[in-house]
Amino acid sequence: MPVSDDFQKAQRFREAALPYLDDVYTLARYLLRDASDAEDAVQECYLRALKHFDSYRGPAMKPWLFAILRNVCNAEYARRAHSHAAIEDTPGAADQTPMWQENEASPETEVLRSRDAGAIRKMIDALAEPFKETFVLREINNLSYREIAEAVGAPVGTVMSRLARARAMLRAAWTAEEEHSK
């Protein structure tokens, strides 16, 4: 039975990349906020990844796939140009939310009410880029700072400040919603 090189390559790729399908799909859902756009983007991501699999030298498969997915998503952002900005630093968006707010009432920890997954996903969805992306990569995809830096092509220091800001924004949104629902 002739087994072509293409098939062997595809088989290696399958074993290396398909176990991360849920991770890649999760990131796509958060970045694109649309289930069917996310599916298209993930499929395109795997197509491109297979095409470039020959040049893949590691180290980790997950950040590599995420980097490819980001490029696919950026193309999708460009297509949607009027409604979304690409994943770039948008100083305006960042400045609107203060890094952190002093809790004047009491230094006690405010206990956040547990919310259902749907409500939390919505709050994460509402975060501005590139903070949302960094947050999802760290908190949901479980990448290390170094891997996030690799996937998004930014220095680790930038990753750290984006993550701090993302968490501050999320917490602000969370407490605001609790105030609102009281």
Binding site: L21, D22, D23, V24, Y25, T26, R29, E39, V42, S114, R115, D116, A117, I120, R121, I124, E139, I140, N141
Partner: peptide, 9 residues
């Protein structure tokens, strides 16, 4: 404690 990831269809 919350499942925030999605499963690929």
């Amino acid at each position: 404690d919350t499942k925030l990831s999605y499963s690929a269809p």
